[in-house]
Simulated scan of single mutants.
Amino acid sequence: MANLKEIRNRITSIKSTMQITSAMKMVSAAKLKKAQDAITAMRPYSSKLTELLQNLSATSDSDAGGAYSKEREVSKVLLVVITSNRGLCGGFNSSITKTTVRTIEEKYSNVEVDLFAIGKKGGDVLSKQYSIVATRNDLFDDLTFNNVAAVAEKLMEMYIDGSYDKIELIYNQFKNAATQLPQVEQFLPIKPIEDGDVNTANSDYLFEPSKEEIVEALIPKSLKTQLYKAIRDSFASEHGARMTAMHKATDNATDLRDELLLTYNKARQAAITNEILEIVGGAEALNN
């Protein structure tokens, strides 16, 4: 019977776990819908703004984009690593930390690299091996454009004052609830458009005032939008990954519960059979 009691306790524990994982799945599903709508609506605007800025920078006769677009020798790099503040989301955070380590080892093994951590999980893991110059774990508490714009302005200042020669974003791009794609995206300097696409992309535009003035006004807005899109992508990916992970956890807990129930019923049936045999054996002994 001690064995039966142990199995009952395990079944009760698994049922409690199922309730938790099922609730977390439903919460993430609700948050995912809102986050998915936000990033889906934002992507066309962000892509068009970036494309316009690249075209203007590439076709301008003067130094359009100023210090933001100048290529210089890379001796110090800043990687902005975007993860989540909470776990229980499958491989969401580990894929970003692995991508960060691989990027440093393959691309920047001969230069100095610092990290800017947005999200507690990535910062906690990477701080054991690399230098974390700043963290902004609070962004996900109130994810608005204005809050992200302040971070983008800080990154732009770091680039302009020469603290870093290159800044890249590392984040999960949202594809669907089950798929998140790790991305390494150049933030500064502004990446120019391919030469072959310049004339075609730019042929239908009339500029007032000059291209240079438009570029100067668009650059800060474009960079802020780029960072905001990356964080929004990561935010939607987090909830998609957590919903998928909790769905799988619930399914696994259900299978384990059913397995234990079968084991419990078999053990209980065997115990009852033994008791019946003992009673019958005792009755026969009395008759004899």
Rank of each mutant, 00 (worst) to 15 (best):
E275R: 14
H239V: 00
T97V: 13
N274K: 15
L49R: 13
K98H: 05
K175R: 12
A134D: 11
D165G: 11
F187K: 00
E275F: 07
E51F: 02
D114E: 15
L115G: 03
K33P: 01
D165P: 01
G66L: 04
Q54F: 07
G122D: 00
H247W: 01
A149Q: 12
I190S: 01
L206C: 09
V81T: 10
V184G: 01
F207R: 06
T200R: 13
A285Y: 08
L79V: 02
Y205E: 01
E6C: 03
M24R: 15
I279Q: 11
M246T: 11
Y205N: 10
E238L: 11
E153I: 04
A285I: 04
A134N: 09
L286I: 11
S210F: 11
F174I: 02
F174G: 05
K15E: 15
A285R: 15
S69H: 08
S127H: 06
S234I: 01
Q173E: 14
R86T: 14
N199W: 12
V113F: 06
E208N: 14
L169T: 02
K266Q: 13
S16K: 13
L188H: 01
A230F: 01
N146R: 12
K120E: 09
A38I: 09
K76E: 03
K76V: 00
R136S: 13
D258R: 13
